[in-house]
Design a protein around this nucleic acid. Structure first.
Lengths: 214, 214
DNA sequence: GTCTATATGGGGATAGAC
DNA sequence: GTCTATCCCCATATAGAC
């Protein structure tokens, strides 16, 4: 039943090698060898190496964002007429990604790097998927913290995104630097720390209406 | 006097192309052609392509961190016996990088991507340079906000780093997504927003000693 | 220091047998 | 669908003339 096809093995292997070595650094030969198939299989199943890259991304991105929207919708329903709290909005954004990372770190450490790739085609794939997420998160945050001007809110969503992505890509450094006390495996702690940090940051007094911090 | 040597032209050109296209995507031929010199000049001046990459990094990283330490030291001196405020500690960390970015965005958009490179040698170059910065920032933050447990403080420094790096690498997306209202060129606004967001995040109530946010 | 020519290897993609 | 052999291109690095 759970028959693993060559196509799936190629996706799994490519995902892992892209994360471990980088996309350019991983050749189709590397992938097909590790997936125990033949060189031509990538072109047969995915048309090209770029097709395989797109396949790796497509398989994970939509389910991840679907999970975010499900959570957000459930919080919206639960809140009734009141705005959803900042913390719950952040949980919908953050928790699904940390859960995915802990099930399989390869995709998000790869994706976290690709989000800033100079390759315009690849960059577009991520940016377009993120647009819908940001749009919905922003709408909810505007209801939750209406006093924050839009410009500032958008900067703060950007900073929040940076904190999350850096956690996918660079948690190993932190674990070493902290002497092992900061562990990505502590799922609830990581999620709660991200929510607390970003939640507090989002709520900070507006820089426009208050005295500038020197 | 300000004679621009071939070596400098190679560094400038490589830095720009690494930022615009990526390191692997930029060939020595691309660089030497754009720098109007011959193919062998890279090997002559830098021994190898990897040597050139290291040269590009070395030229910028030390001055950047030197500037951070100068600022931090001046704030420490000014504060006398009192702890330096969180906002000033963050300014020492953040402002020099945003200023460098606005003078020349190439290095930091390149560096921001390289910080999560899977190439262990390259990664080590950045990580080792950051260690000293984090160490000093952390020491000052422990004096400024002594109530935050060390584990949480380190996570929050990590999130702060993510917010900063994402600003180097992905501000163009934000500018587009915000319809142009969030502009990286607004130097003081960007610095103040980063400081306000991260400062508030760093000061958030401890997740260990308070009721968990649901 | 500058430059051309070249050595050497690896890459993506495909043709065509099975 | 699977696989081998091969095409063709591009990469880094270096030898050796100037």
């Amino acid at each position: 039943m759970t028959e693993i096809t060559t196509k799936d093995r190629l996706l799994d292997t490519a995902e892992r090698l892209f994360a471990e070595k980088g996309v350019k650094e991983t050749s189709v030969r590397d992938i097909t060898k590790a997936a125990r198939t033949h060189l031509a299989s990538v072109n047969y199943h995915f048309r090209s190496k770029n097709g395989l890259i797109r396949g790796v991304i497509a398989r994970r991105i939509k389910p991840l964002n679907k999970r975010r929207f499900e959570l957000l919708d459930s919080y919206i329903a639960e809140a009734g007429d009141k705005p959803v709290t900042v913390e719950r909005i952040l949980r919908a954004l953050i928790a699904p990604s940390i859960e995915l990372y802990l099930e399989n770190p390869h995709f998000l450490s790869f994706a976290g790097r690709m989000i800033s790739t100079p390759d315009k085609q690849l960059h577009r794939i991520f940016a377009s998927q993120m647009d819908e997420v940001f749009s919905r998160i922003k709408d909810q945050l505007m209801l939750a913290i209406p006093d924050i001007p839009e410009t500032e809110l958008m900067w703060r969503i950007h900073f929040t995104t940076g904190a999350i992505i850096h956690t996918w890509t660079n948690n190993a450094d932190l674990e070493i630097r902290s002497g092992g006390i900061c562990k990505i495996k502590d799922k609830e702690a990581v999620i709660n720390e991200l929510i607390a940090f970003c939640g507090s940051g989002l709520r900070a007094g507006s820089q426009k209406s208050s005295t500038q911090i020197e």
